[in-house]
């Protein structure tokens, strides 16, 4: 490497100098894996919500989690985002970061974003404010006290508004949005925070077919730069976006593979897709 190259490398516009990078947020994905979940167990009052669960997610992957109610999908997300303490196991973000030792805000600042089952936006704030608060920025007290929007921030928010189709409603109070719009706003808040890993819980519940389609488009476009994990019950939707599907059952991974592989898996047919498969068989007949 010549001196010139080195200098160029040093002043590349698209990256930050290493000493400016907050160490805690540097995700080491040198083995091309972004999330390691190993031997995870969680029990509530005797009931095992997760039972020795193993899950590995590649960097840039779009992964769908499916499973019956109580299979442990939401609990898994709770553990990853720090909401629920686990009894056993380990969760690593990249090679080095042990998520189990971190609190929810720390995990969020690492670049793990989450969308809840029920849309939760700040109803007293405007759409714009909701996005502003989600921006990837210093989330400390002193910074927020004197924070002001830079033109890049405004542009970013405008981009997101465009993307989620809420440009008209930017100064509307979020509480006044429709259910679907709230879903979009929440996705927008996720995007504004520029996460490495997105955990999305039932994104299309309450959306029209058209909106569902747009969501599918959005999620597929996100994958690659970011890693996306989606929990969804809508099988059509899963089929339309999924490359890899993981089936959870009673707190463990039952099967993993492409949609077709999973659908042909006997265990899966038995416990979860049985009904669905039967229906489909009827349709084709």
């Amino acid at each position: 490497m010549t001196v010139l190259d080195a200098t160029r490398e040093m002043f590349r516009r698209d990256q930050v100098w290493p000493f400016l990078v907050d160490e805690s947020s540097a995700v080491d994905v040198s083995h091309n894996m972004i999330l390691y979940v190993e031997g995870l167990s969680v029990s509530f009052d005797g009931f095992k919500a997760l039972n020795d669960l193993n899950l590995y997610v590649k960097d840039g992957e779009l992964r769908c989690l499916i499973g019956a109610n109580g299979a442990g999908k939401t609990t898994l997300m709770d553990v990853i985002t720090g909401k629920t303490q686990c009894d056993q196991g380990s969760v690593y973000f990249g090679q080095t970061i042990n998520l189990l030792q971190r609190s929810e805000p720390e995990i969020a600042q690492l670049g793990i974003g989450r969308k809840f089952q029920k849309p939760t936006v700040f109803e007293a704030h405007t759409v714009f404010d909701n996005l502003e608060l989600s921006l990837k920025a210093d989330k400390g007290i002193w910074y927020t006290l004197r924070a002001s929007l830079s033109s890049e921030d405004i542009d970013r928010i405008d981009d997101v508004l465009e993307l989620i189709g809420l440009k008209e409603q930017r100064f509307m109070q979020a509480g006044a949005l429709s259910h679907g719009q709230k879903q979009w706003l929440e996705i927008g808040m996720l995007l504004a925070s520029d996460p490495r890993l997105l955990l999305i819980d039932e994104p299309v519940a309450g959306m029209t077919a058209q909106e569902t389609e747009r969501t599918a488009e959005l999620l597929t476009s996100l994958a690659g730069d970011r890693t996306v994990i989606v929990v969804e019950h809508d099988m059509e939707f899963v089929r339309s976006i999924a490359r890899t599907v993981t089936v959870l059952h009673q707190g463990t991974v039952l099967a993993e593979g492409t949609m077709d592989e999973v659908q042909n898996n006997r265990d899966v047919i038995e416990v979860y897709l049985g009904e669905e498969a039967g229906e489909e068989a009827g349709e084709t007949a």
């Binding site: 600042q109 936006v121 989330k139 925070s193």
Partner: peptide
């Protein structure tokens, strides 16, 4: 935001 949804604010990275 904390008043209206503390958990959500936490998941956004605010301590």
């Amino acid at each position: 935001s904390i008043r209206d949804g503390e958990a959500r604010a936490r998941f956004m990275g605010y301590r």
